[in-house]
C-alpha cells in the first residue's frame, strides 16, 4: 500500500514537471533553429541593423523592434487611463452589486478572439483615420488603439483584485482621520495595491508585445522606421507570421531568431512581474 502511494506521488511529480519540460523544449527548439544565424550575423548585426531583405541575405530586425516598442507603448497609453479608472471606480466607489455584475462581464470580454479586435480596427478605425487624419489607415495609431482596448480586461481585472485585496482597516483608518474617499485612494489604497497593479500592467505589456494576428490586420506591416503615428510598421510577431510559410534556409533561421528575441523579452517581463508580485507579498 505504501509503495503504491509513493509511486503515485512520483508519477504526479513527473506530471507537475511537465510545464517546466515544455518551457525548456520550446526554448531548445527555438534556439536550435534560430541561434546559428544570430551567431553568423552577430548579435549587433541582427538587433541593431535596420536592413531586412532576406533575398539579399540581410537580416536586421531593428525596424521590427522599434515597431513593436511603439505599438506597445501606444497600447499602454490608451489602456491605462481607462482600465485604472474602471478598476478604481468599481473597487472604491461602486456598490458591491454593481462590481459583482460588471467585473465578470469585463472578464468575459477578455474572451473575444483577437482576430475580432483586429477586424474592428479594419472596419471602424481605418475609415475614421482616413477621413480625419489622412494616411491609408493601417498605422501605429490604429494598432495602439486596438491593442489598448484588447488588454483593457486583463489590466482592469487584475487591478480590481489588487485594490480589493487591500485590508478594510486601511480604508477605515484613513477615513476616520478625516480624509476624503479620494485622498484615501490616492495616499493609502493605491500605494498599498501598487505591486499588484504593476504586475497586471506588465502582463498587459506582455500581451501587447506577443499579439500577432490582430496586429497583422491593422499595423500595415511595412519594414520602415516610423516618422509619425500614422506610418505603418511591422512588429516582431508579424514578421514571423507573414514570412514563415515561404521562408527557407537562412531566411527561416532569421525568423526563428526573431522568435528568440520575442521569447527572451517575454521571459524578462515575466521575471519582472514575478519579482514585483513577490516583493508585494513579502511586504
Amino acid at each position: 500500500m505504501k509503495s503504491r502511494e509513493n509511486l503515485i506521488q512520483f508519477g504526479l511529480l513527473i506530471i507537475a514537471l511537465s510545464t517546466i519540460v515544455i518551457l525548456l523544449l520550446i526554448a531548445l527548439f527555438i534556439l536550435k533553429e534560430g541561434l546559428p544565424i544570430i551567431l553568423r550575423v552577430g548579435i549587433k548585426g541582427f538587433i541593431c541593423s535596420t536592413h531586412w531583405s532576406p533575398q539579399q541575405g540581410q537580416f536586421g530586425i531593428l525596424a521590427m523592434i522599434i515597431g513593436t516598442a511603439w505599438i506597445t507603448a501606444g497600447a499602454i497609453l490608451v489602456s491605462l487611463p481607462l482600465s485604472l479608472s474602471c478598476a478604481i471606480y468599481l473597487s472604491e466607489f461602486s456598490t458591491p452589486k454593481v462590481r459583482g455584475t460588471l467585473k465578470p462581464i469585463i472578464e468575459l470580454l477578455a474572451g473575444i478572439p483577437s482576430v475580432v479586435y483586429g477586424f474592428m480596427g479594419m472596419v471602424i478605425l481605418f475609415p475614421l483615420i482616413r477621413n480625419y487624419l489622412g494616411g491609408a489607415g493601417p498605422s501605429i495609431l490604429t494598432a495602439s488603439v486596438i491593442l489598448g482596448i484588447m488588454i483593457l480586461p486583463t489590466i482592469t481585472s487584475i487591478a480590481i483584485d489588487s485594490l480589493q485585496a487591500v485590508p478594510h482597516s486601511y480604508r477605515e483608518g484613513s477615513l476616520s482621520l478625516g480624509a476624503t474617499r479620494w485622498q484615501t485612494i490616492r495616499m493609502v489604497i493605491l500605494p498599498a495595491a501598487k505591486t499588484g497593479i504593476l504586475s497586471g500592467i506588465i502582463l498587459g505589456i506582455g500581451r501587447a508585445v506577443g499579439e500577432t494576428m490582430a496586429v497583422i490586420m491593422i499595423a500595415g506591416n511595412s519594414v520602415i522606421i516610423p516618422k509619425s503615428l500614422l506610418d505603418p510598421v511591422r512588429t516582431l510577431t508579424a514578421n514571423i507570421a507573414l514570412e514563415m510559410n515561404y521562408a527557407t534556409g537562412d531566411h527561416r533561421q532569421a525568423l526563428f531568431a526573431t522568435g528568440i528575441v520575442l521569447f527572451i523579452t517575454i521571459i524578462i517581463l515575466n521575471i519582472i512581474a514575478h519579482t514585483i508580485a513577490r516583493g508585494g507579498v513579502e511586504k
Binding site: 510545464t19 515544455i22 520550446i26 527555438i30 533553429e33 514571423i240 520575442l262
Partner: peptide, 29 residues
C-alpha cells in the same frame, strides 16, 4: 515556486512562439 514560475511563463508566451515550436517539433521533426 519553480513550477509556479514555469506555469506563469508558459501562460505569458505569445501564441506565435507556440506556433513556431509546434511547427518545428510536431509538423517537421
Amino acid at each position: 515556486s519553480i513550477i509556479r514560475f514555469g506555469t506563469d511563463c508558459l501562460a505569458g508566451i505569445p501564441s506565435i512562439i507556440f506556433g513556431l515550436f509546434g511547427f518545428v517539433l510536431f509538423v517537421v521533426y
